[in-house]
Design a binder for these strands. Structure first.
Length: 316
DNA sequence: AAGACGAAAGTGGTTGA
DNA sequence: TCAACAACTTTCGTCTT
């Protein structure tokens, strides 16, 4: 990674060097597998520790309870009532610990209403269940929290428009997750999403299209570039490979060979070539495996890339 | 022996009548 | 709704390292 800096600056010094920041981080790509942002200019990992905004739900023992650093629920849309919930407990004390003076009857009545209104409408009930499912699915897919938030927002909107009626919560949630991934450029394939649900890819795809249409959401076609960091990382390759692979993909796009092709396959081939170039060879099979395509597809894309760049075995 | 390459047949999804 | 179609996969054989 460091060499890249050196390379860059030494090239740039041609035009009278003012000390630029080593990496402006203008083009960042999210490596969702590891919760990192990777800079396309330098391949540098920008931020590794994404803050975990999830609540600290669990405290099984009194000691654990004491150790919980944060208080209060997170104010997020992934909690069905936005995190606003008041509980009237059974100690008959108010928040300051003073005894509540009202008649017992009154308190009992209050509690009853509280229980009744906490999950007020069927919509709230639906959302509560959906958020549960979203949390589960999000964990299995290693989704960063902002994606889950977006999925939650989409789902909420879907419910409000009555799109869930007649469909299973699970399938709409899965579709919402998929939409959020596409929107936020966190590459997850339809297959990956469906693998963790009981819903087939077909149903999810149908719901996905429905959401796009009904909620008027636009998602760009998947950019192969988005897959690159994930593949590179999975292969344990240096960040320079990311940079090079992205360059290759951009040139390839200009030559118009990327249309209609599986983006994962394209990314895989680019990574394969880039790895070869930096002398960190990986087999086609390895690359294909982590990219979720077959060896043959990698090969075909590779052939097309090779034609453009006129590279035979050499060419560094 | 393992990887790279290519041909041929099969599969799931999209498109256009 | 059906057929044509393109892209991808599976399978298998051959060549190279």
């Amino acid at each position: 990674m460091e060499n890249t800096h050196v390379e860059n600056t030494s090239v740039e010094t041609g035009k009278e060097s003012k000390p630029k920041p080593p990496c402006p981080h203008e083009k960042l790509v999210y490596d969702s597998e590891h919760g990192e942002y990777v800079c396309l200019e330098t391949g540098e990992v920008v931020e590794e520790k994404i803050i975990d905004e999830r609540p600290e739900w669990r405290a099984f023992t009194p000691e654990e309870r004491g150790r919980r650093a944060r208080t209060g629920g997170p104010l997020t849309t992934t909690v069905h009532d936005m995190g606003f919930a008041t509980a009237i407990d059974y100690s008959n004390k108010d928040a300051a610990g003073r005894k509540l003076m009202g008649k017992r009857q009154e308190l009992i009545k209050l509690r009853k209403w509280q229980a009744r209104t906490r999950i007020l409408t069927s919509m709230d009930r639906n959302l509560a269940q959906a958020m549960n499912e979203l949390e589960r699915l999000g964990d299995l897919l290693n989704l960063p929290s902002h994606v889950k938030e977006e999925a939650a927002r989409i789902y909420r909107e879907a419910v409000e428009k009555g799109l869930v009626r007649g469909r299973s919560i699970e399938s709409v949630i899965a579709a919402a997750v998929y939409v959020a991934c596409r929107e936020l450029k966190v590459p997850r394939s339809l297959d990956e999403v469906s693998r963790h649900t009981r819903i087939g890819r077909k149903d999810i795809a149908r719901c996905y299209r429905l959401l796009l249409r009904e909620l008027d959401i636009k998602v760009g076609t998947t950019d192969p570039v988005d897959y690159v960091p994930r593949i590179v990382h999975a292969l344990g390759l240096p960040g320079t490979v990311v940079k090079r692979a992205v360059e290759l993909l951009n040139v390839a796009r200009e030559h118009g060979v990327t249309g209609g092709k599986d983006p994962a396959g394209l990314a895989a081939a680019a990574v394969y070539v880039a790895a070869l170039e930096v002398g960190e060879k990986r087999t086609q099979k390895e690359v294909a495996h982590v990219a979720g395509v077959t060896e043959v597809t990698v090969r075909n894309r590779y052939k097309e890339l090779a034609k453009i760049f006129g590279l035979d075995a050499n060419a560094v």
